[in-house]
């Protein structure tokens, strides 16, 4: 299972009223390369911010807010997890795509391999938690994941042999912000 497999599966699973937020680095770049859409919002920097952004959107809209976070990114700002558990947005799905590495800077190891994110998510108050190691099992669970009452936490264990970079996001940050605001208004 690779980041690309996961992103393809998530983006191919049609949900009427969802928006997708991607953390910086290869997760944003691969998602942009696979299927750019007005429902997608990419962070090109500000590592660790995607989960709090998702929380702010989820609190202020009825849309399903899908956060595609990385292991390095969530480790950088882990304090957001208990805040999400405390606020309890039922429309938030928080994915951790865990390849044990800071991939875009040269695959340096993070410390995630030894961390039980699922126990943490439970302790922080996420309402439903999942862990997947096989893409086939993940695909068949997508309806359950998207129908669950959130906040939902999904730990995707990718491991060290991950897919490579996608293209750099070809839209200006200002345009990305305008686009997602418009999408959230119109959904």
């Amino acid at each position: 299972m690779t980041t690309e497999d996961i992103l393809r599966s998530v983006l191919a699973f049609k949900v009427d009223n969802a928006v997708y937020l991607f953390t910086n680095g290869y997760i944003s770049r691969q998602a942009y390369g696979i299927a750019d859409s007005a429902k997608n919002f990419y962070l090109i920097g500000s590592m660790g911010l995607v989960s709090s952004l998702g929380l702010g959107i989820a609190m202020n809209s009825k849309k399903k807010v899908v956060v595609l976070d990385g292991d390095g990114s969530i480790l950088m700002n882990m304090g957001t997890m208990p805040l999400i558990g405390y606020i309890e947005p039922n429309n938030l799905i928080h994915f951790i795509l865990d390849n044990f590495a800071y991939h875009s800077t040269g695959n340096q190891p993070t410390i995630s391999e030894n961390i039980d994110f699922l126990k943490m998510a439970c302790a922080c108050g996420y309402k439903k938690v999942f862990r997947f190691k096989k893409i086939s099992e993940f695909k068949s669970a997508l309806p359950e994941i998207f129908n669950a009452c959130g906040p939902v936490f999904v730990h995707m264990v990718i491991g060290k042999n991950d897919s490579s970079a996608g293209p750099r996001v070809g839209l200006a940050p200002l345009m990305l912000a305008r686009r997602i605001r418009k999408t959230i208004r119109s959904l």
Partner: peptide, 13 residues
């Protein structure tokens, strides 16, 4: 995190 949450609120209008 405060900036992130409030920025998310802005993106939601």
């Amino acid at each position: 995190v405060a900036m992130g949450v409030s920025s998310g609120a802005y993106l939601a209008g």
